[in-house]
Design a binder for these strands. Structure first.
Length: 564
RNA sequence: GCGCCUAUAGCUCAAUCGGAUAGAGCAACGCCCUUCUAAGGCGUAGGUUGCAGGUUCGAUUCCUGCUGGGCGCGCCA
């Protein structure tokens, strides 16, 4: 309906221009806002306010003209029952009952597809997230990345994109060597307190689990690889490969428990093996943005907005991490992803400038702002009223698995996705665990379960819909019903907006609002009443509301239970 | 010192590419189960949107400068 009114306003502007009431050059950005207050109607528009100056009229005076012209349009008046000029010059639109209730049949007809759209036009998009190195279990920060990244993926799928979920990790290099040494030490019976324990070794107990499994000659199967231990504690390479596979499998299990699955696992080592790093370096040298200094090879990233140039090849001949990063992103581009979203922790934000600069320096026509980044701010964990310090090496941190076990998958996903990624998040374990009944996710799920219960009982009592079901909708006249109708109609635009702005928390916010409207309605009006028309109408609205709650929860990856 | 993020009710957070009287939950207080699930609803109380300017019909939102918090600033990843 919003689009319907907007179209008429666009036509009206054209008409006003030809009537010389507005200058030909005027290009208004007309806002159609959902009103916050029912007294202001269903939608409000600012056309008269922004067009007043170009038209040389007072806003309210111009609004009078606009309203009169719109009112003269019969097709328009059928949908909009009333218009009011308010405040400084807003035009408030009040929808007709028909227009207001039409969403019910739309929802029931579209079912799980209600809210989906095709703004992505089936274009490919790649979303890289989590991308944790296999040096330990996933912690709560990875959990936030998993929740946000997966919800983004669902949002983009719902808006017509073809989504590839990708996980990038480093299976070689200094950190992995350190991991191998730590496992080796454990396998030889050493502990972190022993004198010969590797410097900066990983101290967590899970390292011992890896070591014992290695000694037992186990075979581990991760999503992307399979390795059998050869039990030789002097074979560091075998230890390394086994440890990587072991920890990858642990992460896979955590992610599975969290309801997150990836389409592609990409190994940093493959960039070297397949010559992509070498090819990228050559391209950068050929493009003329590199120079040698102090025995190292530098990239002039300052030409692309960086605050200092960056070393590409160290004096020891190895490449710095950002070279394979650039190679990896070039590879993404060459795989045909015109849209790529990297979801990562804010502690990696400095890589953005570097990677983009490197891609620009390649001179292969990659757009300047490519790829997109969604950075989530850090998660701090409170337990027993104190902040839990996260230290991987000391092994003291809250794992994603802990959270799933303690507060459940649904609540954890909701908590981590329900806040704007750009704001810091305090996850209070005790609160989440001890007050599970006050958790907003249950509030939403409860709304869904209540509606399911109503449907069940309607069925038991053989309350079938009346033949003139659509006409019954005119009976949806209570304040609570109007509020629910209004929210249902907003769902598609909410999904589009959340997808466009890459902000899953907008869905969480919407669902809370819809659940609140539903609970109010449920308490104020009895659904299973004697009046067959009212009953039919309410059952239809209940079914539509249940459907939208389910659709929204699905976007968050949270279950919609039939009963609680 | 520089860069990115951030500051909203006692606490945790919302607030539509700038809109009308800044909203929810938790915590507090008072009501509502003989009625479709009380994991719920209704009501009361709670605010100089960190501070100071600017832009305009209008600023929590945009700009500038301060102040506080987080994260980065390596020939580590």
């Amino acid at each position: 309906m919003k689009a319907f009114i907007s179209e008429h306003l666009d036509l009206l502007v054209t008409q006003l221009k030809s009537d010389r009431l507005l200058p030909e050059t005027f290009q208004p950005r007309i806002q159609m806002d959902n009103t916050k207050d029912k007294l202001h109607g269903d939608f409000a528009c600012n056309l008269a306010l922004i067009a007043a100056k170009p038209a040389g009229k007072k806003p309210r005076e111009l609004a009078e003209i606009i309203v009169a012209l719109l009112a003269a349009n019969a097709g328009f008046s059928q949908q909009v029952s009333k218009m009011e000029i308010a405040g400084p010059g807003f035009i408030n639109f009040f929808l007709s009952q028909d227009a207001l209730t039409s969403v019910v049949t739309q929802v029931l007809k579209a079912g799980e597809y209600f809210g989906r759209s095709n703004v992505g036009q089936n274009e490919k998009v790649q979303i890289e997230f989590v991308s944790a190195n296999p040096t330990g279990p996933l912690h709560i920060g990875h959990g936030r990345g998993a929740a946000v990244g997966d919800c983004l993926s669902r949002l983009l799928e719902a808006t017509g994109w073809q989504v590839t979920r990708e996980f990038y990790y480093n299976d070689a290099g200094a950190q992995i060597d350190n991991l191998a040494l730590s496992v080796q030490a454990r396998a030889k019976g050493l502990g972190p307190d022993d004198a010969s324990w590797p410097k900066d070794g990983y101290q967590g107990d899970y390292i011992n689990d890896v070591a014992q499994s290695f000694l037992a000659g186990n075979t581990v199967i991760a999503d992307d690889q399979q390795v059998t231990a050869n039990t030789d504690t002097d074979d560091l390479d075998a230890l390394r490969r086994f440890a990587v596979a072991f920890l990858r499998r642990e992460q896979d299990l955590d992610l599975k428990a969290f309801g997150v699955a990836f389409d592609v696992y990409y190994l940093e080592s493959s960039l070297y093996e397949e010559g992509l790093v070498a090819a990228t370096v050559k391209k950068l040298i050929d493009s003329g943005y590199t120079y040698e200094e102090g025995g190292a090879l530098w990239l002039r990233t300052t030409d692309f907005g960086d605050d200092k140039d960056r070393v590409m090849r160290k004096t020891d001949g190895g490449y710095t991490y950002f070279v394979p990063d650039v190679a990896y992103h070039l590879n993404k581009w060459q795989r045909g992803f015109k849209k790529v979203i990297n979801e990562q922790g804010a502690d990696h934000h400095s890589t953005i400038t570097r990677v983009r600069a490197g891609l620009q320096a390649l001179k292969v026509d990659i757009p300047e702002g490519w790829p997109d980044y969604v950075l989530h701010q850090m998660v701090t964990v409170m337990r027993d009223g104190e902040e839990v310090k996260i230290s991987k090496r000391a092994g003291s941190y809250v794992t994603l698995r802990d959270l799933i076990d303690e507060v459940g998958c649904d609540a954890t996903r909701y908590f981590l996705a329900a806040r704007a990624p750009s704001s810091q998040l305090t996850f209070d374990i005790d609160l989440a665990r001890s007050q599970t009944n006050d958790n907003p996710v249950y509030y939403i799920q409860y709304a869904h379960a209540r509606l399911c219960s109503v449907e069940r009982q309607a069925k038991e009592k053989n309350y079938s819909g009346s033949s003139d079901a659509i006409d019954c909708l005119a009976k949806l006249t209570t304040d609570q019903e109007q509020a629910v109708l209004n929210l249902l109609a907003r769902f598609p635009e909410t999904v589009k907006k959340a997808a466009r702005e890459l902000e899953p928390h907008q869905i969480a916010q919407y669902l809370r609002d819809l659940a609140a409207a539903m609970h109010s309605w449920y308490n104020a009006n009895q659904f299973l009443v004697e009046d067959v028309q009212v009953r039919t109408a309410r059952l239809m609205l209940a079914a539509a509301t249940r459907q939208v709650l389910a659709n929204g929860l699905d976007l968050l990856g949270v279950t919609a239970p039939d009963s609680m």
